[in-house]
């Protein structure tokens, strides 16, 4: 399972992005996190070659949300054979934008003294959920009404054993804010909002039937292609 940070936001476990055999002995694994309003790329570099590695640098291809390193990649020392170094690279969202397929795809180039290597990684969209994503209740009601039902996506979230208060708390620590909660015929209906770094709002209705582990998530957004990535984030947060 993932590592809980002090803020309580969910971080996926690191996965291997670049195996050593594809990068002349350099292995890169990593994950993405949002901590105190800053997006970070947590990267582990392992030298599985027989020579020392120096002169590291990193560059991103343009991507859907303008993710870009906010500082140069700095490894404190050269990487000796069999050595591992962990780095947290702060990211900004003001880099060049180009819509990627899938939307959350990030193409990365890493250089060292041996060569330049390329890999792709998929970031969870919740790293883009900003801290001021709580929509005014009146605006929520108007926006919900305004977005046509064709733009509504509905999903089932299965095997989730949390009550609605636990769900609200868990989501809030990931910048998904519950604006209203209603109980209708025994079901809890949570109305929630979140906002992406590029200003796109996402409105959600989460139905929880007491005693049932299956939730219904309805999402309304003016950019409906985002919905499936929001679902992935809900599932990761609620099941970890």
């Amino acid at each position: 399972s993932g590592v809980g940070m002090p803020t309580g936001s969910y971080v996926l476990p690191k996965t291997v992005w670049l195996p050593a055999m594809k990068a002349k002995g350099l292995e890169i694994s990593g994950t993405f996190a949002r901590r105190m309003g800053t997006i970070q790329m947590d990267v582990t570099f392992t030298n599985k070659a027989m020579q020392i590695m120096t002169d590291f640098a990193i560059q991103f291809n343009r991507n859907s949300f303008g993710l870009s390193p906010a500082a140069p990649l700095q490894l404190a020392t050269p990487l000796s054979p069999n050595q591992t170094i962990e780095v947290s690279l702060p990211l900004s969202t003001v880099g060049p934008v180009m819509k990627m397929d899938p939307l959350n795809n990030l193409q990365v180039a890493v250089k060292n003294n041996i060569d330049v290597f390329y890999f792709s990684s998929l970031y969870p969209i919740n790293i883009l959920f900003v801290e001021d994503g709580k929509m005014e209740r009146q605006v929520f009601l108007a926006t919900w009404k305004d977005i046509p039902s064709d733009n509504e996506a509905q999903f089932q979230i299965k095997d989730c054993h949390l009550n609605s208060d636990a769900v609200s708390n868990k989501l809030q620590s990931n910048n998904i804010f519950t604006i209203a909660k209603r109980n209708v015929e025994g079901q809890d209906m949570l109305y929630q909002s979140m906002k992406l770094t590029n200003g796109i709002w996402i409105l959600a209705e989460l139905r929880i039937q007491p005693g049932s582990p299956n939730f219904t998530l309805s999402l309304k957004c003016r950019a409906p292609e985002i919905a499936q990535f929001v679902l992935q984030s809900y599932e990761a947060m609620l099941k970890n």
């Binding site: 209740r137 009146q138 009601l141 919900w144 209203a180 209603r182 209708v184 015929e185 079901q187 209906m189 109305y191 209705e205 309805s218």
Partner: peptide
């Protein structure tokens, strides 16, 4: 929370979603 007159509106939304 301050009653801003929207409580009823959310109740209506929830009701309508449950019985479309």
């Amino acid at each position: 929370e301050i009653d801003d007159g929207l409580d009823e509106a959310f109740s209506r939304l929830a009701e309508s979603r449950n019985n479309p």
